[in-house]
Amino acid sequence: MSTDTTTAEAPPLTPIIKTAEDGSHYLAGCKCGACGKLFVGERKICAACCARDQMKPVRLAETGKLYAWSIVHRSFPGVKTPFIDVVVDLADGAHLKGTLEGVVPDNSALAYDMPVKIAWREAAPVNAGGKTYLTYVFVPA
């Protein structure tokens, strides 16, 4: 079960999800001041150029294009299938994995580079005893 409304209580499902002081959510990234690489999540050292103490926090873009996908029919116990597992190239150059909602899980409904955007959800993951977490999904833009 997932819902479009978010509450202050639901913890983030992944550490890259942040909540600003005004209650809005964003995805944390960082950019290397030495080589310019953009990373999903926070880090101190650049994995690409090895520079130390050059990382600056950024908010990741919330729109992007579909790079690759798979329709997952068999997953771990308790996970509802089918769902669409996607790799998205974000507009700022970052690359993010996620689930695509709002599209029929059929290859004919999917196309390379189709525009997508981030939406926020509260959902109960498997093995969480029904507790809900704040997560992101991709939806058609």
């Binding site: 499902l13 690759a68 997952v72 997953s75 771990f76 996970v79 769902f83 597992d85 999904v137």
Partner: peptide, 22 residues
């Protein structure tokens, strides 16, 4: 607690499906 299904899939078949789809 697993993000499986909510943030894509961490299964091996799905990872290698992406590589094929690429």
């Amino acid at each position: 607690v697993s993000p499986e299904g909510l943030i894509g899939s961490g299964t091996m078949p799905a990872m290698f499906a992406h590589i094929g789809n690429e």
